[in-house]
Design a protein around this nucleic acid. Structure first.
Lengths: 193, 193, 193, 193
DNA sequence: TATGAATGAGACTTCATTCAT
DNA sequence: GATGAATGAAGTCTCATTCAT
């Protein structure tokens, strides 16, 4: 799919603009200004505003899904997989905050279209499966509700788009580690554990 | 302040409409239709569309803050307080889902105005303080980052607006209990703990 | 024509409001606020917004016309009549500035309705007749164009609504005297005249 | 600054419409109809309705000011300058009646913004200065109040927007001459003067 | 590819007016 | 007489989209 030369400019400008003003609050003129062209010219690149929204979000959503799919198949203990789920999620947030913000704000969990519903569901299932593995393997407590735990984790990760400020891979990994730690170990002190 | 008679109708209709279509995506005509009046008539009740947004959200936000403030002062162990934080949050989500959805989607963590920034910050601080108490009292692990843990918990709770389906107080309490359990005990099995 | 008790309040409030914001720029709610009642209540006094405009303006326009009619019939030299025309005009401006402002701004010379066109024309004719008298009597220069001179004088007087600040009868008389002096004697110095 | 192609159409249509119906009484739809486009399309040319008002009026106001400024500096007797002030004013009225009507009706002497207040004041001062010159040079009577005379003259000239019907430069000059004559010589016959 | 202009629908908001109480 | 509420039309302005150049 050979894209016109300034395709990337358009998409990244739109990501910035949509993440700042929201999809509904931003106009295509805002986007065009950010790229440095007139709004009419945008239609050389897109077919509609919604198109642009999906174009922003799809590559990152697919990357997240791909990497998580592979991780699930990896030969690692569930707790390590969970840690890496957080790391992948945060690595993308750190590197692509505007894109992810748009995804979280406008699409995730909203059932906009079958395609996105399916993506949401797959990601939820992947995370829940990892947790279920952990339970089966005896690493995670038997009483754990895998699906709800997955939702809690995903919520905590997505919510980071409202407070996290990108600081590079190392920082992203650190924060992800802390969050994973909370979900794995809980807040309670382990007395003589 | 005595409100005109259909004030409550207006607010609840707006909450439903905004939570379904989003604040930006919903028109005042949508709201008016839901109440059963003409869009011009809405202006007997509100001064602007934004006004209506805040009117929807403020009472619930204040209830959450009030109850959490009181809880913080209560004479209970931190772990019990944390559990009740989740219960309060979920009780309001269960009872007022459209309102909370609007709040989470349109306001929380967005820094729209000093007033809302302050509310967000106070809630975060309240939750973080409870966690800090738990650390001081030795109930929670020393290594815990109170502020980040609070953010994780709040994110997990707010994210529920995208998946939770109200089912009455008992269900709300059950779900809250499970989430609190995850944050307190973690996913890991406690061997001989 | 027995008027309801607060008729005068309504009219004077409207005069103030219309003269500040203009007829088009002012809303009946503005007027109602100024009186201290609700806008619906105004309709106990008026039949329409335009009604109110005319009610504001008519008594003063009639007073001006009446007094000028009588003056024209008086047994005085034309130059003295001209002086008194200015005095009457300014006395009303001084005493009723908001009303006159509304008249000048919204009605005078605009041909809104036959009634007002007739009033405008009568006033113009009265002033022009006085000037014509002066020409006939040899007091005013033969070359004078009575109608145009009348228009110049009326313009200068009406324009005062944009700069004059009421200061009581004495001041009004003084200013009127100066303006009349300009129209009578002109600016040129009378060398050995 | 290269203007879009139909900029002049828009401005002249707006001038016509505003001068007929008043700024407040005219809608942008009226203007758009007059140009032959849809009301939304106007916003390719203007940023707001007020913008359009100022765009109509500014060039003419500036022309009047510029020419009057230069005139003041000219090496002519004050009486001749005064005559030319009237001629300039009337030449613009004759050529641009709708524009000037809008200015007189909506802006002059109303203190809408510092910019217009300053323009009004400068014009008043220019005229008053010319009169003051005449007094100093002994051409005008010592008793003359320069500022008030200027106001009278400006009022008489502006008022012409309510009665003058354009008839070309020659007629404009003739009318201006008569008005100037009134202000210079006064109405009184000069007996053996 | 980019531009400038136009379109047309629809948004928020105002407001004169009416009316039951 | 006054009130609170509703009406419905109209107004200003925005914006996704189209299209000739």
């Amino acid at each position: 799919m050979p894209r016109p030369s300034r395709w990337d400019d358009v998409v990244s400008a739109a990501a910035r603009v949509f993440s700042e003003k929201g999809f509904g609050g931003a106009s295509l003129e805002d986007v065009a200004n950010e790229v440095g062209m007139l709004k009419g010219s945008l239609y050389n690149y897109i077919k509609s505003k919604e198109d642009l929204l999906f174009a922003i979000v799809r590559p990152n959503a697919e990357e997240l899904l791909d990497r998580t799919r592979k991780l699930k198949e990896a030969d690692l203990p569930a707790s390590e997989k969970l840690r890496q789920i957080a790391e992948i999620h945060f690595e993308i947030i750190d590197r692509q905050l505007p894109y992810v913000t748009v995804y979280v704000q406008e699409i995730a969990g909203k059932g906009l279209s079958p395609e996105w519903t399916a993506m949401d569901r797959e990601y939820l299932t992947l995370v829940a499966d990892v947790i279920a593995e952990g339970i089966e393997e005896g690493d995670f407590a038997e009483s754990t509700d895998a699906r709800m735990s997955a939702r809690a984790l995903i919520g905590a990760l997505n919510w980071a788009t409202r407070w996290y400020q990108p600081g590079g891979p190392a920082q992203a990994r650190a924060v992800a580690g802390q969050l994973a730690g909370i979900f794995l170990g809980g807040l309670l002190a382990r007395r003589r554990g």
